[in-house]
Design a protein around this nucleic acid. Structure first.
Lengths: 339, 339
DNA sequence: TCACTTTGCTAAAACGTTTTAGCGAATTGA
DNA sequence: TCAATTCGCTAAAACGTTTTAGCAAAGTGA
């Protein structure tokens, strides 16, 4: 059951290796291989179960049919679900996904990128963290196809796909407003990426548009990477001090911590607090009354990211829009006080 | 900034390609390259930033330094967290992970395995579903290193790493017993894998050992792959009919559905029902009183799986135990009625 | 000193493809 | 009929490694 190679097909079909290669790569017209020979080759190849050795192809062509997926950490439902759709979408174009995380200490991002480049990776899908920016820049300089997901670096003109953070938060805050809340707080983080900044802006602008008088402190800025118990305490302190009547959370893990903080204070949603969270999670659906959340269109994000990357890689015609922003969807649940 | 290759190093160091290869692969002793030349070569290689083209290496040696991770679907917290640790653990040995899911329709498992084999994958980590058994068998027949995770196929003697399902459920049931419950039900699925069967056995044996009289019907067998709303209804009907005073759930998604079912019936945990779930989830920690669960030792599972696979692949000396079972840990929370 | 071994290195084949250049036969144009 | 073109295909180089076989110089034993 040795692996069958192109020369096997060539000899069994009584033709040259080149002929086989041409036919199997769809260049029979161009290379004028006759219909009959082409048919024969295809038939033999199928019968013998031929599939090209990717290493050889990669060596010869420099293409690996592999794309690299770089994430901070893949645990976390948003990432893992996205990874899943990326895998299927890439598969549709015949690409496999190899992924690496930059966070888990095993290797720095330069190391990771080097390894991926050693594997002749054809393109990169990156969910960036700030400290990777320079690496991305060097990828771009070397003409590597890159598409950023869920954030972007303003300076580099890298294509990106992201959710409309501003609009998402704005929708959430508006929903709370419509439900009658007037002292709406925001829990965000100090993460230095547009991602979070747009969310903060989504909050501030909306609150301004609704002509709510907000004390500055109604924004609770947590430290990114903060340990969970600290985070919970921070939110609890904020709630005790500022007494918002509703909270808009800027990220799913913040919402989760928020729930824990409220529980700790003996408060409950929606009796004592209105709530909306940016980015949905199972728990928001299951938590007793159901927590309204802004759902990220994961499927569309993954779909578009792969599509744009394929464009960059020359696999498909490049589309006009190299960067897109996708609207999130407000999933209304019962995290508001009635009447 | 062209990629530097071995011949560049050779010429800059004024030696042959072979010499460079020997030194950089640590065969200098064996191939008696002098200290001084070796030093020179290493120095030049470092300065020029040489890193071997993996495609070429792979073509020549047949090894890719890539392992294939095959899962049903990577979304789901257990899988994604496990994927994460596998990635880091594999990284420690210099291996990258390429993964493919069999479930999401894009490609069948034969197709997936073929593609991985085209990429010269060195070994496989598989979280099996029943229908992949024959494929695994053929991998084994072709002497491919394979380690199964979280289940095993009795017939094939494939190494595996799994959690002690029997013990985990037994611990959960015992906990409920200690809390005073005497009419403990079990919600499992008809999934035809040892995995689930051991859990059912863990329940039945424990219940028998405690000398509880259980009507047969206290086991609720759900259909694997059942649609969620159907699942919830099934559990609700079962609860209404059999009136257990506590429930042991055989899988995390079952526990979640169970919570929804109970909510639908106007019942709550722990006031109206004791509960333990096999396999922990965020929601069990966050759900108001906290649901006791059997936590799977994800880190250890991933660690061991990679270790055994490396043994199979000849990367490290093969350990005595090729298959291991790891104990889960009962995380006690407040899903029981006091007094 | 001479045969033999060891030392330190190199040449070249091989891995399985893709692709360029080109060759003989058939066809066309005049 | 003869030159020119087109047709249908093949030979061989190249991709960047690893590894086998072997060669010249130096060392060793007698």
């Amino acid at each position: 059951m040795r692996k069958v190679k192109i020369s096997d097909i060539a000899s069994k079909a009584g033709v040259s290796i080149s002929a086989v290669s041409f036919v199997l790569n769809g260049k029979e017209k161009e290379m004028r291989i006759s219909k009959s020979v082409a048919r024969k080759i295809r038939q033999v190849a199928k019968k013998e179960g031929y599939h090209p050795n990717r290493a050889a192809v990669s060596l010869r062509t420099g293409e690996s049919k592999i794309i690299g997926l770089i994430v901070d950490t893949i645990s976390g439902s948003f990432f893992s679900r996205l990874a899943n759709v990326i895998e299927t979408e890439a598969g549709k174009y015949g690409y496999k996904v190899i992924y690496g995380s930059t966070a888990n200490g095993s290797e720095g991002s330069e190391q990771l990128l080097r390894i991926l480049s050693q594997h002749n990776v054809d393109g990169y899908l990156v969910m960036p963290e700030a400290r990777i920016e320079s690496q991305i820049a060097s990828l771009i300089k070397r003409k590597n196809p890159v598409v950023l997901i869920d954030s972007y670096f303003a300076k580099l003109g890298v294509p990106y796909v992201m959710v409309d953070n501003f609009q998402g938060v704005a929708d959430g805050v508006s929903w709370l407003y419509e439900k009658g809340y007037r002292r709406i707080g925001f829990v965000g983080s100090d993460l230095d990426m547009v991602q979070m900044k747009d969310r903060v802006r989504g909050y501030s602008d909306t609150v301004k548009a609704k002509k709510l008088k907000i004390p500055k402190g109604l924004i609770c800025e947590t430290v990114y990477g903060m340990e969970n118990t600290m985070l919970i305490r921070k939110i609890a302190d904020y709630v005790k001090k500022m007494r918002p009547d509703a909270l808009m959370f800027g990220a799913n893990y913040l919402g989760v911590a928020g729930l824990e903080a409220l529980t700790g204070l003996g408060m409950s949603v929606p009796a004592d607090m209105g709530m909306v969270c940016f980015d949905d999670m199972d728990i928001f659906r299951l938590y007793p009354p159901g927590i309204t959340a802004v759902e990220q269109p994961i499927h569309e994000i993954g779909h578009k990211a792969v599509e744009i990357l394929m464009g960059e890689m020359g696999v498909i015609p490049v589309s006009v829009k190299k960067s897109i922003m996708i609207k999130g969807h407000l999933v209304e649940r019962n995290s508001f006080r009635v009447g």
